[in-house]
Design a protein around this nucleic acid. Structure first.
Lengths: 212, 212
DNA sequence: GTGGACTGAATGACGGTTCACTCGTGGACT
DNA sequence: AGTCCACGAGTGAACCGTCATTCAGTCCAC
C-alpha cells in the first residue's frame, strides 16, 4: 500500500528477481514466527507486500516456498562453510569455526536459523526429499574434517567420524533450540551465545582429542 | 465392525480408560508415520478402531491428543530416568545410563521417540505451553547430575552444567533423528545403536572429565 | 495498442468438530 | 426371576469455516 515501487533507476521490469527474493525473505520471517503449517499464504503475501496470487508466479505452491528456502539458503551456507574450513589451518580451528558459524547464524539470521531448526522436521515427505540430501552434505563436510583430524593423528580414532559429526550437529542444534524457543522476540545475547559456543567447542574437542 | 467387544470378564463399562489408551497408542503410531499436521483425526480413529466422534469424548481436540501424549509419556519417562539415576553410584555410570536410556527408547518405542523428536518442534504454541516445561525438567535432571559431578570434582568446572546438558540432549536427539528419518520402516539395528551410544558417551565423558 | 507482470475476490476442497441418534447395561420394580 | 426404563458411551454423516489455489481483469512499460 504505502509502498514505493521500483525505487531506483531502471524502473520495475527486472523487479521480478527482486520479488522472488522479497517473498522468500518474508516467508522466512513468517515461518519462523508461526511455523509452516500455521502460516497462511496470504500472510506471506502481506509480509512481502505482494498479492496472494503473485506468490504463485514464483513458486509452485506453499510447499515449494519452503523447499526453495532450503535450496537457496542452505546452499549458500554450505558454500560459506566450505570456504571457511578451507581457510583454517588446523583441525581444531576448523571445528571451532564450524561451531561459531552454526551458532553465529542464530545471531545474524535468527529467523532462518529457526526455520531450519524447527521446520526441518515438519513435513517428512518434504524433509526427506529436499532437506535431507543437503543436510547430509552438511554432515559429511563435518565428518570429513573429523576424519582428516584422525588421519593426522590429532583426533582419536575410536570414534566414527559420522557419529561424531552427528553429535556435533545435534548438540549445536540443541543449543540453538534453547534460544529459538526461549526468547520469543529478542535476539539471544551475543555474549551468552559466544560463551556457549566456546564452552561447547572445548568440551567437544577435549573429548575428541587423541589421548596421549 | 469385526471387532470383539468387551472381551474378557466383567464386560464393557470400565472400558473407558481403555479407549483413551487405545486412542493414545494409535495417535502415537499415526503421528510418527505422517506427522501431526498431515494426520487426519479420522485416521487416528480408524487406527484406534473407534468412531471419529469418540476421540472428542476423551480429548478436547486434535491438539489435545498431542498434548496428552506428551503429558502421559514424558511424565513416565522422567519417572524412569529419576529411578535409574538414583540407582547408579557414580556420575559416569549415571551419564552412561542416560545415554543408553534415551537411545534405547528408540529401540523400544520407536514411534514415541519419533513423535517426541519430530513433533516436539511443530506447533510452537503447543510446544511452549506444554512440552517445554517437561522438556526443561528433563534437562534439569541431566544438568543436576553434571553439577553433582562437578561438586565431587569428577567433572570439570569450567563448563556450565546447563550448556553441557543441552549439548548432551541435542547430540542424542541428533543421533536419534538419523535413524528416525533414515530407515522408514525397519527398526534401527540395535548393535549400531549400542555402538553409537557407547562411542558418544565416551566422547562426551572424556570431554567433560576433570583434567588432571 | 500489446504483452505480460501483477492483483485479489471467488472458488472448491478438505477435514475438524458437532450432535441427533443407537444400543448395551444395570438398577428398580413387580 | 423377568421386564422395563433411564442413562450415557459410542457412532458417523453432515456441517461449516478455513484456506490454498485460480483466473478474469487491471495497469504499466514499451
Amino acid at each position: 500500500m504505502a509502498e514505493k515501487k521500483g525505487s531506483s533507476a531502471k524502473g520495475g521490469k527486472r523487479a521480478g528477481g527482486d520479488k522472488r527474493e522479497r517473498i522468500l525473505q518474508a516467508a522466512i520471517r513468517v515461518f519462523a514466527k508461526n511455523g509452516f503449517y500455521a502460516t497462511r499464504v496470504s500472510e506471506i503475501a502481506k509480509a512481502a507486500g505482494v498479492a496472494d496470487g503473485t506468490i504463485y508466479l514464483y513458486f509452485e505452491n506453499k510447499d515449494d516456498v519452503l523447499v526453495q528456502i532450503f535450496e537457496d539458503r542452505i546452499g549458500k551456507l554450505l558454500e560459506i562453510l566450505r570456504r571457511v574450513i578451507a581457510k583454517e589451518e588446523t583441525v581444531e580451528a576448523r571445528i571451532r569455526r564450524i561451531v561459531e558459524l552454526q551458532l553465529g547464524l542464530l545471531e545474524e539470521e535468527r529467523d532462518l536459523a529457526e526455520v531450519i531448526t524447527v521446520n526441518l522436521r515438519q513435513s517428512s515427505r518434504l524433509l526427506k526429499q529436499y532437506a535431507a540430501p543437503l543436510f547430509t552434505k552438511y554432515l559429511e563436510l563435518i565428518a570429513g574434517v573429523i576424519a582428516d583430524g584422525q588421519k593426522e593423528g590429532v583426533l582419536r580414532r575410536d570414534v566414527s567420524p559420522r557419529i561424531a559429526a552427528r553429535s556435533l550437529w545435534g548438540a549445536l542444534d540443541g543449543l540453538a533450540l534453547t534460544w529459538a524457543l526461549g526468547t520469543p522476540e529478542r535476539k539471544p545475547d551475543p555474549a551468552t551465545l559466544r560463551k556457549a559456543a566456546t564452552q561447547f567447542a572445548t568440551l567437544f574437542l577435549d573429548g575428541l582429542r587423541a589421548r596421549d
